[in-house]
Design a protein around this nucleic acid. Structure first.
Lengths: 132, 132
DNA sequence: CGGGATCCGGCTTGATACTG
DNA sequence: CAGTATCAAGCCGGATCCCG
């Protein structure tokens, strides 16, 4: 083994310049997280553009399109376009994307499952500060 | 059991109006994720304001303060101020916050560990589209 | 249907300065 | 040290129009 083989930490999100920070933001971003979540929630994991849009309640066409491009570029989502009329485009997770989405969903489900605690904490916090 | 006891899904991030979406954004937001990650990476998990600021490379005072308030309000972070001079304030995760941070760190580490794949995917993507 | 291009208002963010 | 207040800038995100 060469000393050059030593990998080291290599990538560290806590470092300002690390490219992993950008990817983490695509993944955890407002629409990125929900898009990955929607694709992961499926058994067979393939969705068309407008199906996806309906599942991610509140997303605009522009933001969904933009989000999908970023995720595709990072190798997390695969886009398959069929040159039919009307056009049909399917999106699905890549194996890498499935790994990410799995962990993301674990986080999402945990948060959803503890929302009663969160809501309670908020009420206590707000009560402490009177009206502000 | 009363029928009223039936909990149902109760909270669903995919729904626009669900409060869990807000909490998820605090948790996964740009600075929220890194702040929770920094607090979770510790053995004894207590950090002072400026220690935290140094670990989360690039965060401004304002954003860190704002982020900590949101996390405290959601019951994920505990704030302990000592009225000494100079003032000393320690932040640490609550049990709930530790649960969230654990899952968040699993995601972060997974992304960091696959960045080579991501970088490769980006190069292939960019090459396909010529210069843009 | 599945987007791209453009315009534009507003919220988020980052410096800077100030306080206890 | 641990923040808050203020202000300007910029990027995000929505609406709209358009095309294949």
């Amino acid at each position: 083994m060469d000393v050059m083989d030593s990998p080291g930490p290599a990538y560290d999100v806590f470092s300002k310049a690390c490219p992993s920070r950008g990817t983490l933001e695509h993944v955890t971003g407002r629409w990125g997280a929900l898009t990955l979540g929607a694709l992961a929630a499926l058994p067979e994991g393939s969705l068309r553009f407008n199906e996806l849009r309906r599942r991610v309640d509140g997303v605009s066409e522009k933001m969904l399109s933009q989000t999908l491009h970023a995720l595709e570029r990072d190798g997390l989502v695969h886009r398959e376009a069929q040159p039919t009329n009307p056009p049909r485009v399917d999106y699905e997770l890549t194996p890498l994307g499935r790994g990410v989405a799995e962990r993301l969903l674990a986080l999402i489900r945990f948060v959803e499952g503890r929302m009663d605690d969160v809501v309670g904490a908020r009420e206590r916090y707000d009560a402490t500060r009177g009206g502000r």
